[in-house]
């Protein structure tokens, strides 16, 4: 019985398949290259300062607690700041992320929306001062918000190299119409090591990650009534 045979030999099929795959891959690679080039040529790129600031922000989002040292009216002042969750507050049943700042005997709780002095209860504090205090104390959430707002607005970020106690660091200077912030960061890890708010005319606050002994401090123990609404994050 006669059998119909393909006019194309096996080697012909192979050559056809290789040619097809090569053409397809070539066309796809050409288009990917064109798409990349189109983006690279037309869209502006962020500045080096903005990229370093974004890395610093990434670092801050992973930080839970920080200790800071600053000179206030010529006297050294140390603070500890930890991430906490606050709620329920007043009629609001929700829990919100907050910073708990402890300076000596004073405790300050700061959320995105309000600041509270923590005594035996929480008392709301008005004005910009609590927010400035938490930023200067290097509270990760407060700094994160401040740096994030500058980046949201694409504020210019100047970068220069400085030497802090003989170690090379990067200084980031954020400027916007009515506000500014200076941060000194470690160029390897992008962790903030010092902070200053130029318009407030304060000195630099020097920051370091909190050690277990900092977090075991008796001043971090809140009164029982407050422990119900202010909880340290795991």
């Amino acid at each position: 019985m006669a059998r119909s045979e393909s006019p194309i030999q096996p080697t012909g099929w192979l050559r056809l398949a290789v040619a097809s795959v090569a053409t397809a891959a070539g066309l796809a690679a050409l288009l990917a290259g064109a798409a990349f080039a189109l983006q690279a040529v037309t869209l502006p790129r962020p500045s080096r300062g903005q990229l370093i600031a974004a890395q610093t922000l990434r670092r801050l989002t992973g930080q839970d607690a920080v200790v800071s040292r600053a000179l206030v009216r010529g006297r050294p002042v140390a603070s500890v700041c930890v991430n906490v969750v606050v709620g329920p507050l007043g009629g609001d049943a929700h829990h919100v992320k907050a910073s708990l700042l402890i300076t000596g005997r004073r405790r300050l709780v700061e959320t995105r929306f309000a600041s509270y002095r923590a005594g035996s209860t929480l008392r709301e504090e008005d004005g910009p001062l609590p927010t400035i205090r938490t930023a200067l104390a290097g509270c990760p959430r407060a700094l994160e918000r401040r740096v994030g707002r500058f980046l949201d607005d694409r504020a210019p970020v100047a970068v220069d190299t400085v030497f802090l106690r003989g170690v090379r660091r990067l200084r980031l200077s954020f400027h916007r119409r009515d506000s500014g912030l200076s941060l000194i960061v470690d160029p390897r890890t992008f962790a903030p090591v010092a902070v200053r708010i130029p318009r407030v005319r304060t000195s630099w606050s020097y920051l370091a990650p909190a050690e277990p002994r900092d977090l075991a401090s008796p001043s971090l123990r809140l009164p029982r009534r407050l422990r119900v609404i202010v909880k340290e994050e795991a």
Binding site: T23, A24, L27, A35, Q39
Partner: peptide, 22 residues
């Protein structure tokens, strides 16, 4: 045309891949 046809099917994928690369 056969090769170009396969290429056309892969073109959206190639283009999407160019974005993370950028």
């Amino acid at each position: 045309a056969n090769g170009r046809a396969i290429g056309a099917a892969f073109a959206p994928l190639a283009s999407v891949a160019a974005f993370p690369l950028y």
